[in-house]
Amino acid sequence: MSDARMPGSAVCSAQVDLSAISDNAAVLAARVWPRLLAADLAADGYGHGAVESALAALRGGAATLAVSELDDARALRDAGITVDIVARRGLPSTGVPLAGQDHEVYSAGAALYGLVEDAELRPAMRVSALVVGTKTIEAGEGVSYGYTYRATTRTNLALVGIGYADGLDRIASNIGTLLLGGRARTIAGRVAMNALVLDLGGDTVRVGDEAVVFGDESQGEPTAAAWAAAIGRSAAEVASVFGRHLPRVTS
């Protein structure tokens, strides 16, 4: 992304495509008709940004909005949103009919953000980070805390500026892969608080290259659902945690 080349810009970010939220809202609104679609904005819109997500969902055909508690509605009102807003905390987050409306209302959370396996829905969030260092190690040398990874042969490594404090689960250590240089690269050793290491084998990359945790499947990138499944989490949780910690770039 061009933003990543600006001085002082973040080495990791969550990029949110609001058109995906609008398009998903349109698909879901048609499916639940004649019930009305409520866009679930819990957890700051599952990490996508509550106000931006609300506006995008309303553009797509959502009729009402669901928030955790009515205090959360204030920012939406301040943004000029006048549709009905209901409090949803304590209700299941998938497909709940909400009472108290003139029409029956159906609430969509994970599906609205494209975080479920569904061919008609598109993921709205992409998470990536930049290579901040490279090195080559010899067979037998360890990587990161506790040396839980040891190279079996001479190999190239990329240090990427994203870690568990950014929302990348530490359980992904030695398991998860990121897309870098056109291929899935396995995390070598423990994910640290703000960085991880990828094993490149014989390939090389450069400082500043982008490693993708998940993003747009049509561009050959792994999906949030695939990332989440690989580490035994739900995609809704993964997106919520990343979105609340990473700098967000909205388009």
């Binding site: 990543a4 080349r5 600006m6 973040a10 930049l130 290579v131 901040v132 500026g161 500043g208």
Partner: peptide, 21 residues
């Protein structure tokens, strides 16, 4: 944790110590 492109003038001006590799 230094990114590929940083605002080093601001960092130096603010007297921030930098860990360089």
């Amino acid at each position: 944790l230094l990114g590929p492109v940083e605002d080093y003038a601001a960092a130096i001006g603010a007297g921030i110590d930098l860990g360089v590799s």
